[in-house]
């Protein structure tokens, strides 16, 4: 059991790619390239989620991050310029301070987290264990998270979907469809 888990190498290489893409997004000025890189960032992080067993999160990340956001970003670029203006050096420092403080707070909070896979942690001890034991009998879906999202909390998920659909429809009615009709009638 002490054998080195070689799939860890995949995790590390994906994380290195995420870091490289993040730095490139900050440094590039061409907004087209940045939109594409953000799509790629989402793809990499979704692949990483799959390797961490979080299949549902990966599904959502791929659909929302790589699919919808790329198109939304492009639509937003219709209203702005094609190139980003360089940011003044003074504003880098403010951002760096905010990021450092947030990162330090998160690292401080890591100390209070239970060990990975701890049977007495809050996630495993109470109702979570109940879901894990009863899901195969009640829902018969192999992935517990999917069962919770789509069946135990099905109405909740449905409500979320309706809200997002209504919001998207409202935005399209306010911005999109009119312009298309005007252009087509020209």
């Amino acid at each position: 059991m002490t054998e080195f888990d070689w799939t860890q190498l995949l995790d590390y290489s994906l994380m290195a790619m995420l870091l490289a893409v993040g730095i490139a997004i900050v440094r590039l000025r061409n907004l087209f390239a940045i939109v594409m890189l953000m799509g790629v960032y989402s793809l990499i992080s979704a692949a990483w989620f799959v390797s961490l067993d979080a299949v549902d999160v990966a599904f959502t990340e791929a659909a929302v991050g790589a699919g919808i956001s790329t198109v939304l970003m492009l639509a937003a670029m219709l209203l702005t310029a094609r190139e980003a203006e360089p940011v003044k050096a003074g504003r880098h420092w403010a951002a760096l301070i905010v990021v450092s403080v947030t990162g330090a707070a998160l690292f401080y909070a890591v100390g209070d987290m239970p060990i990975y896979g701890d049977p007495n942690s809050a996630a495993n001890a109470y109702v979570g264990m109940d879901y894990i034991t009863s899901t195969p009998n009640e829902i018969a879906v192999p992935n517990v998270v999917t069962a919770v999202l789509a069946s135990y909390r099905g109405f909740d998920t449905f409500g979320e979907t309706v809200v997002i659909f209504a919001a998207g429809l409202g935005v399209m009615l306010l911005l999109g469809l009119n312009a298309a009709k005007k252009e087509a009638g020209k």
């Binding site: 939109v35 799509g39 793809l43 791929a62 790589a66 699919g67 790329t70 198109v71 492009l74």
Partner: peptide, 14 residues
């Protein structure tokens, strides 16, 4: 499979 679909849509959109 989802990625393959999304990849296609995003490329066409760009």
């Amino acid at each position: 499979l989802l990625y393959a679909l999304i990849n296609f849509v995003a490329t066409i959109a760009i």
